[in-house]
Simulated scan of single mutants.
Amino acid sequence: MRILGIETSCDETGVAIYDESQGLLANQLYSQVKLHSDYGGVVPELASRDHIRKTVPLIQAALAQSGLQAAEIDGVAYTAGPGLVGMLMVGATVGRALAYAWQVPAIAVHHMEGHLLAPMLEKHPPAFPFVALLVSGGHTQLIAVTGIGEYQLLGESIDDAAGEAFDKTAKLLGLDYPGGPMLSRLAQHGMAGRYKFPRPMTSQPGLSFSFSGLKTFAANTIRASADDPQTRADVARAFEEAVVETLMIKCQRALKLTGFERLVIAGGVSANQTLRTSFSNMMRKHGGEVFYARPEFCTDNGAMIAYAGMLRLQGGTPADLVVSVRSRWPLEALPALSI
């Protein structure tokens, strides 16, 4: 079975082809970073128009890369949510139209399930059950995972997601878009211990997150400090350490609550090197294992959509002819699969 996957939920246009026996055959990605950099963030209308321009050429490039013809594709998967409707509709309409023209099933994929399953694309994928930490610009969630579609939400952010807080704090530091990765690079030059930021919601029980107050603390610290390169680096380091330690504390609680020994970290923030080092050390002490996708599969991409779509099609959940996308879509609402 070969599935073509299309991802257009935000500011990356991704197209990939996944074969159930041979693995990933093609992976094409176009980033809109330059398009949105002048605005300091994603402009939805511009993003949607750019997806329209790029999706079909990337599909053609993916077919060429894989050496396949359209007749050799067995299904088309597309991101159907959650996300902004205008961007989602581009991939959904193209994907649904291709599936109709090629007379193959279409599969509507949950964006966060794609991220959650991205580590399955690696040579040593995690076995079930595991705790998943999904950290991206729009989501920070802890999920107990016992199978495909068997998801229990343990906790999530009540305000800003971790990635959103990274981007907003980067903007306060005068960094360009996309701010999160730039803040992390700046933090590498920071002095440890100069600033101590709070670890929000860790002094009380539970698995919920809150990063809005941490962003405000960063803003107040920046206003009260000298405006020089070393100070900005020190603030960036203190902020990054606070976010990573907060995530670690909550993950430790989730592992203890579930009794699971495996932790999956997925989403754009999972590419952060400080986070990876800290969590690897934590799980080594815990006696468990931590799994990530390779960095290029942490951010939005077509490969994770193609893979998730393949599993969904194998489980018997193709989409009907109606093109439908969802701005909100609880992960735990997905049906479980027995595959």
Rank of each mutant, 00 (worst) to 15 (best):
L58P: 09
K171E: 14
T93F: 00
R53H: 15
L116K: 00
P125T: 12
L58G: 14
V85F: 10
F211Q: 04
L24Y: 04
E72T: 07
D228K: 09
A161E: 08
C298M: 03
I249H: 01
A224K: 11
K215A: 01
M304C: 09
I148L: 15
I222V: 11
L337K: 01
A293E: 08
A132Q: 05
G213S: 08
Q314I: 02
A293R: 03
L153Y: 02
E12Y: 05
A64M: 10
G5P: 06
L98Y: 07
H51S: 09
A306W: 07
E12F: 04
P229H: 02
T146W: 01
R284A: 15
A226W: 03
A80Q: 11
P105N: 12
S210C: 08
A271G: 08
F291P: 05
R312K: 06
L84A: 00
W102T: 01
V244A: 14
D11M: 05
A106D: 10
D159W: 02
S270R: 08
A62W: 09
K34Q: 15
A271L: 12
M182R: 14
D74M: 03
P82M: 12
A77D: 14
M89V: 08
A144W: 07
F260G: 01
V15I: 15
R326A: 15
L257E: 14
S208M: 04
Q273E: 13
L24V: 06
T169E: 07
F217M: 10
K168R: 14
V131L: 12
G179N: 07
